[in-house]
Design a protein around this nucleic acid. Structure first.
Lengths: 270, 270
DNA sequence: ATGACCGTTGCAACATTTGCAACGGCCTTC
DNA sequence: GAAGGCCGTTGCAAATGTTGCAACGGTCAT
């Protein structure tokens, strides 16, 4: 819609691939060097882009700060986190939390099977959408039209022999997941890894996030992992309750945002 | 420099505070709703902004994906290398760069005491983890639980009389290193070789790599080598700064001459 | 049903952005 | 050591893209 901004923002994914100099940026944007320079300068002023000592550009620290702030503002994550760590302490395996947004499923939290986390670097990663348990859970909650539209657009990579092969199989699987209220990924992404997952629902009953427990074959068999299902579902339900029940006030789930939002209007400065 | 882009980017930190609707964004930008709408649309197309079901805008998913990708493609070695060679030219000794990975510490770069190097044959080699300065630096940053777990599992070969003898001594040494922010290896690996090292930290303050300067006794005594410590630390800090990217608002004092940095943000029109 | 609020769109005037050409620094090459 | 090439940078005029306005349609509360 806005050409200038569009060009400027196109620089970001370009730089995410690796550092680039002015000429490269200008070329890939299809604009003059001078134009690219001005865009980069503006990005630089906002800290989204950083200039290294060899004069090449790369993504800047502010971007990470923004991403982190955004993650923290996702209140599902805030509420879920203690439950996830508790679950991890009980079963010892890796626990994931994911949300659906704009045709993507992303991990927004993770508790490693050992360490107490802080790995902000790992979260934010797009999920293997056609096979992951959390992805199935999140997509299964969409309307049939949406599900079909998305299923058609997806690629179906054959990670393993058990990967979802095509749109038809995927839609069928989603229907099953939708019906039973939980999902698995048994070696569909990596041959030796199994997952069981359950949905987290908001006050209106819609799925707002999904969680899963993952473990390698060599530690527990798929059958053993499935025995954790009740525990996983109970945890997910506990999160759901807390998530939907926490806000006594108005309509929806935007908990703390509403509290200090309304009065501010002039309060900004520079 | 570019007004349009400048406005669009100003929306991001605004949204980081919490979700906002079109009117709020327009007000705080000081522009018309229609203008704000078009900017938001462009941001939305690029996934930097997400529109929740109540029509308000939030920071979007691609922000995470970008940060994630950037982190993965961030090459410490690439950034560090010029600094390492510069240090080598100043002091003449061998300079090492190492990272921790999967219970191992590996050299990932090395500048020989003479030649400008391309000795990639040596790098990739596991480090004597119980004695090397870089190993101490990398392990010292782990959580106490992790440190202990690793210390227990390690062997403590007696390379020399000064080698770290056992887990207890190692943990104690790690505590010291963690506290003082630098490390040494005085004849712990080879009787006649001394090292001083310093950590390289990422944007979140965690140690992502470690560097050290090594020299044989016959060239410089341990005391003389220690006089290089400030230089080593300064180099490591410079690499850290460059690795994490610049801080947005303030001035930056990274490398050589900050020749023409004058144009502050006041230069804008109106 | 009425009014208010909010997001959205087409349009014309305007300001902003764009590409160009030229400069200066740095490095390699002859 | 000079010549040539490469890269980032700047001022300028043309023109393209952006802006604010006014009006529309939808939703919600009165």
């Amino acid at each position: 819609m806005s050409q200038t901004v569009d060009r400027a923002l196109s620089i970001l994914p370009l730089l995410a691939e690796g550092p680039a100099d002015l000429g490269q940026v200008a070329d890939r944007l299809g604009v003059h060097k001078s134009t690219a320079l001005r865009l980069l300068r503006t990005l630089h002023e906002h800290g989204l882009v950083y200039r290294q000592s060899d004069q090449r550009y790369r993504l800047g620290a502010r971007l990470f700060a923004l991403a982190q702030e955004a993650v923290e503002n996702l209140d599902v994550r805030e509420i879920a986190h203690p439950h996830l760590t508790a679950l991890n302490e009980k079963c010892g395996h890796t626990v994931h939390l994911a949300v659906y947004e704009e045709n993507e499923v992303l991990y927004i939290d993770k508790v490693e099977s050992r360490y107490p986390v802080r790995m902000y670097s790992r979260i934010g990663k797009p999920v293997a959408i056609t096979v992951a348990a959390v992805a199935k859970l999140l997509l299964a909650d969409l309307s049939e039209a949406e599900r079909r539209a998305i299923a058609e657009k997806l690629d179906y990579p054959t990670y393993t022999a058990r990967s979802t092969p095509n749109a038809g199989a995927f839609l069928k699987e989603l229907a099953v997941v939708r019906e039973q209220g939980w999902a698995t990924d048994l070696g569909g992404h990596e041959e030796s890894i199994n997952c069981v997952g359950a949905p987290i629902r908001g006050a209106d009953g819609r799925v707002v996030a999904a969680m899963s427990v993952s473990a390698p074959n060599v530690v527990v068999t798929a059958e053993e992992l499935l025995t954790l299902l009740p525990l996983v579902r109970r945890t997910a339900d506990a999160i759901s309750r807390e998530y939907s029940g926490a806000v006594p006030g108005s309509k929806e789930a935007t908990t703390k945002a509403a509290s200090k939002e309304a009065p501010t209007k002039e309060a900004t400065s520079r």
